[in-house]
Design a protein around this nucleic acid. Structure first.
Lengths: 358, 358
DNA sequence: ATGAAAGCGCTAACAC
DNA sequence: GTGTTAGCGCTTTCAT
C-alpha cells in the first residue's frame, strides 16, 4: 500500500495526497476530501521509513538507561514517554545493563537508526563521556538523572543536597555515628550522594565514627554490606543507603540477625520507590520530582541546538524532598508495638501492628 | 557520511563497498581491505533508514507491555532484550498503560515504523484481539505472558495451575476460608489465575467461604481491597492476591490495622518479584521462568510465518514454581525474630524451594 | 568479481 | 494550488 496507489484511486498526484494527509500545504477542500477518502478506503498507512529517509527525521527519540529493573527508572521513563507522546514522538528505549561498552553500542545503534534525539542516563560519569559527546555531535542529546561531564545538557536532581538533608535529619534524631552503604561512584548520582553524605557528616557529626561500604545500586549489595556491618564490633547509630534497593537488602539481613530498625539502628533509603512505603518498617527516603524531570528533559531536547556548539549548555537541577517514615523514628523500643502509646489505636501511614499475642 | 563518499575515498564503486561491508557477496580481498580502511578512516556508519527502505527490514522488533512500572515486566523485558541483542536486533519498547486504545495506537505506530516483528502482552484478553490480529496479518507477532485469543503465537506460563498450587499449599496449612484479591480479568493472566483459584478452592476447601475483590494489578488496589476486607465481620484464613504488588498493598493496610501475617491471616503474592523476599513477612509467591519465556518468544518470532496463516499456531506454556516464605507459615508467633530457632529457616511440611534471603 | 543503473516510498523543489 | 521531477542512501539487479 503506497501513496501512489492512493493517488491513483483518488485520481490525484502523489504529491497532492501527501500534502492532503500531512497538511503541510494548503490543498483544495474537495481534493483533500477525495484524498482522505481514498486513503481511508484502502487503509493506507504511511511508510515512516521512506518518510524518514526523505525528511531526515524519524519521529523517534532514543533513551538509554542503566537498568530498567531498578524501580526508579520505569517511573522516569513513563514520565518521559508521556511527554513525548504529547508531541507524537516514539520512544526507543534501551537498557545498557550499567555497562559502558554496551552503552556505547546502544548509542551508536540509535544514531544509525537516525533517531531525532537521545535521552541518556550515563552509567559512568567518566567513561561514558566520550560516548555522550559523540552522540551530542550528531543529534540533540539531554542527559537525564545521571551525567557524564557538563558539556552536554542535563536535567536532574540535586543529589548532594538531598543526601545532606538525610544526614541532617538523622543528626536531629540524635545520631552521631554513621555508616554509609554506597554505590560505586561510577554513576554521577552515586558520587554526588556520597559527597553530600560526607559533607553533612563532617558538619553535623563532627566527622565522628564513619564507615563506608562501596558496591552498587542492588539489593544484593545491600545484603552483602549488612553482613560486613554486622561483622564489625559495634553498630553505628544510623545506616545511610545509596538507594532504596540497597536499603531493602540491608534491612533484610539486619532483621534476619535480630537487629531492630529503628530500635537498634536507623536506616534510610533514597528514591522513594513505591515499595519504600510498604516495607517494615517503612523507609525514610528521598522523593525526586520525576514528572518534572521528564517534562523538562523532553522540552530541552527540542531546544538543544543540533550540533552541540550553538550556545550555552543548559542544565536544570530540581530539588528533592525528604520523606520521613518510621525507619528513622526510634520512638518505640525494639519489640514494642507502634505507635508506642497514645489515643489513636488505628490507621495512619506510619502505623502498624498491635502488640503480639492478642 | 554516505557510502558514496567512502567509495570515492577508496576508489571503488558504492556497490563494492556495500558488498565489502556487509559481506553479502564475495569481494576481492584487496578491494575489501581498501573498502574497510576507507570506512574506518571516515568513521562511516551505515544509514539504517536507507537500508531499511531498500531491504524492507529494519532490524528492529517492537514490544508492547501493559505497564513497565510493574516490576514483573522489566525482568521479562531484560530477558527479551538479551536474546534480541544476541541476534543483533534492536528493541523498540512501548508501554500501553494498560489501555486498549493506547495499545492499538502503539501497534499501529510500530507497524508504520516497519519493525520486523512484534512482541505483545495484550492488556485485554478480549478487546485487544483485533489489534493483535491486525498486527499479525502484517508482521510476525508473538504474544508474551498475556494473550488475546489463540490465533496468534503465544509464550507464557500456566497461571491456572500455579494459582491452584498456591491454594493447595494454603489448604495444607489448614486454611479453609479464603479471600481472593483479584485483578480485573481483562488480562488473560488475571483471568487464568482467578480460574485456578476458584477451581482449587472448590476442590480443597469444598467451596467454603470465599470472597472476591476485583480491581487491578496495583499496590493501591491492594490497599483498597484490604480496607474492604477489614470492613467485613470476620477475616478469612488466607488472602490470596493476584500478584505481589497487590499483596504488598494488602499487607500494608493489614499491618497498619494490627492484623498479623501470618499469625492472623496467611497471605500470598504472585510473580516472585525481587521485593517479595524482603517484605516483612517475606511473601510466599510464584516464580515464573522468565528467562526461558523471553528466549522462547524471540525464537518463535523468527519462526512465525510472515502472514499468520502458514501453519499451526505455536503456543508454549511453561510451568511456574511455588516459592514458600514466611507469609504462609504461621509457625512462629508475631514479634518473634526469624528464624525463630534452630540453625536455619523453618522446616515445615512444605519447605521453601529457595531460602528467603536470610 | 566489479561497476552502472534502477528503485525502495516518500516529500521538497520546481514549474505551471 | 497542483502535477511533474528529482533524490534521500542504500542494496540489488543487470550487464560486463
Amino acid at each position: 500500500m503506497t501513496i501512489r496507489q492512493v493517488a491513483t484511486t483518488a485520481g490525484l498526484s502523489p504529491a497532492t495526497v501527501s500534502r492532503a494527509l500531512s497538511g503541510s500545504r494548503r490543498v483544495a477542500p474537495e481534493l483533500q476530501a477525495r484524498a482522505l477518502a481514498a486513503a481511508e478506503q484502502l487503509g493506507y498507512r504511511a511508510n515512516r521509513v521512506a518518510r524518514a529517509l526523505r525528511t531526515r527525521s524519524t519521529g523517534t527519540v532514543g533513551m538509554v538507561v542503566p537498568n530498567i529493573a531498578n524501580p526508579f527508572f520505569p517511573v522516569i521513563i513513563q514520565a518521559v514517554e508521556k511527554q513525548l507522546r504529547a508531541q507524537g514522538t516514539q520512544l526507543l528505549l534501551c537498557d545498557s545493563g550499567d555497562d559502558v561498552r554496551q552503552e556505547a553500542e546502544l548509542v551508536h545503534s540509535l544514531l544509525e537508526h537516525r533517531i531525532d534525539g537521545i535521552l541518556v542516563s550515563p552509567c559512568d560519569r567518566v567513561s561514558s563521556r566520550t560516548t555522550v559527546r559523540l552522540a551530542a555531535s550528531q543529534v540533540p542529546v539531554v542527559q537525564i538523572d545521571r551525567r557524564a561531564g557538563s558539556e552536554v545538557a542535563f536535567v536532574g536532581v540535586d543529589q548532594d543536597r538531598a543526601m545532606a538533608e538525610v544526614v541532617e535529619h538523622l543528626a536531629r534524631q540524635g545520631c552521631r555515628r554513621f555508616a554509609y552503604v554506597a554505590s560505586s561512584s561510577r554513576a554521577s548520582t552515586a558520587a554526588e550522594r556520597s559527597r553530600g553524605y560526607r559533607r553533612a557528616v563532617q558538619r553535623f557529626a563532627n566527622g565522628s565514627h564513619d564507615r563506608l561500604y562501596a558496591g552498587d545500586f542492588s539489593m544484593e549489595w545491600g545484603r552483602e554490606a549488612a553482613r560486613r556491618l554486622l561483622a564489625e564490633r559495634d553498630l553505628p547509630d544510623a545506616v545511610v543507603c545509596a538507594n532504596d534497593l540497597v536499603a531493602l537488602g540491608v534491612l533484610d539481613v539486619l532483621r534476619s540477625h535480630g537487629v531492630d530498625v529503628p530500635g537498634d539502628v536507623l536506616l534510610t533509603g533514597f528514591d522513594d520507590t513505591e515499595v519504600a512505603a510498604v516495607t517494615w518498617p517503612p523507609l525514610t527516603s528521598v522523593r525526586q520530582p520525576l514528572e518534572e524531570v521528564g517534562r523538562r528533559a523532553v522540552e530541552l531536547l527540542r531546544t538543544v541546538p543540533d550540533r552541540a556548539d550553538g550556545g550555552p549548555v543548559r542544565a536544570t537541577l530540581f530539588r528533592a524532598e525528604l520523606v520521613v517514615r518510621r525507619s528513622t523514628q526510634p520512638g518505640a523500643r525494639p519489640g514494642e508495638s507502634w505507635p508506642p502509646a497514645g489515643p489513636r489505636g488505628q490507621a495512619g501511614p506510619q502505623e502498624a501492628s498491635r502488640a503480639a499475642g492478642s
